[in-house]
Simulated assay, not measured.
Amino acid sequence: MSALDRYQRFRFRRDGRILTAAIAAPGPVNAVDAVLHAELATLFTDLQHDPASDLIVLTGEGRTFSAGGDYAWFEQQVADPRKFRAIAHEARRIVTSLLDLEKPILCRLNGAAAGLGATVALLCDVIIADERAPIGDPHVKVGLVAGDGGTLIWPLLLGPARAKEYLLTGEMLTGAEAARIGLVNHAVPAEALDSKVAEIAAKILANPRWAVRWTKTVANQPLKALAAQMMDSALAHEMLSNLAADRAEAVRALIEKRAPRFSGE
């Protein structure tokens, strides 16, 4: 039995030495719930140790990649902050294990990616997006610090000023806009997504395995050093923001499908 057989929130497909991992959470938007969060914390280590693959494609089942967190899970974390505290180690491992993965990983951004979904997408080596796919980090809109990797990767890709504009407003971009400003590598029409992914995968796999893996390892060293410097503080501030009154109001407003009434507390 493969380690990948135990996953509930992913579907795996193989094409030669390419392994596709598709997020397959309940509901239409592949929202991050407790199970998916826990699985993301182990996925990249298990992919590293998968003997039958040399390149990973990360995508979403259906029409989305992963459009943020599950509202019911948010509500549980507000009601019992210990549940939020308990997943801090998972949040750290999602980022560090993705950066530790030696195999090249391509993101096939087939639809909306928000919050942690966007972070995971942007930490991949090459991101190929549907030109109409929305991508953004709206943590602030739900009353949270973007502590699970957004404050790490957005400034690296865009520069501090432009990244802070998107992180502080929570604004979403289209795939085409994201490619134009350098947030993702390529944006193509939906019907061309698979061919573009296959094209880049073939170019990478045409090169010697260990030259590819260890080039990536060296290129990721500055990201790993920055993650080690930032992640504990980022997660601590995110946990603090989960205690705020405006966080609880943001979650209630989402569930009740109304505009939030923030107090500043």
Rank of each mutant, 00 (worst) to 15 (best):
M1E: 11
F10H: 07
R11Y: 02
R11Q: 13
R13V: 10
R14Y: 07
G16K: 07
R17E: 15
L19C: 08
T20A: 14
A25S: 15
P28L: 11
A31C: 07
A31R: 13
D33A: 13
A38G: 10
L40R: 00
A41N: 06
Q48I: 09
S53L: 07
L55N: 00
T64K: 11
T64M: 03
S66P: 04
A67G: 13
Q77D: 09
R82A: 14
K83T: 12
H89M: 15
A91Q: 12
V95N: 02
T96D: 06
T96C: 12
S97D: 14
L98C: 01
K103M: 06
C107A: 14
R108E: 15
A113S: 08
G115N: 14
V126Q: 11
I128Y: 14
I128C: 10
A129T: 07
R132Q: 05
P134T: 03
D137W: 11
H139G: 11
V142Q: 03
G143F: 06
P155K: 15
L157Q: 04
L158K: 03
P160Q: 15
A161G: 05
A161D: 13
R162Q: 15
K164V: 04
E165R: 15
L168T: 02
E171S: 10
M172A: 14
E177C: 07
G182S: 12
G182R: 11
L183K: 00
V184Y: 08
N185A: 11
H186L: 15
P189E: 02
L193Y: 04
K196T: 13
K196V: 07
A198K: 05
I200W: 06
I200S: 01
I200E: 04
I204G: 06
N207G: 03
R209V: 10
V212K: 03
R213I: 01
W214C: 10
K216D: 00
A219F: 09
Q221V: 12
K224E: 00
L226N: 05
A227C: 12
A228Q: 14
M239G: 08
L240F: 08
S241K: 04
S241M: 11
S241C: 11
D246A: 06
E249R: 03
R252D: 15
L254V: 13
L254A: 13
E256G: 05
K257L: 05
R258N: 11
R261D: 11
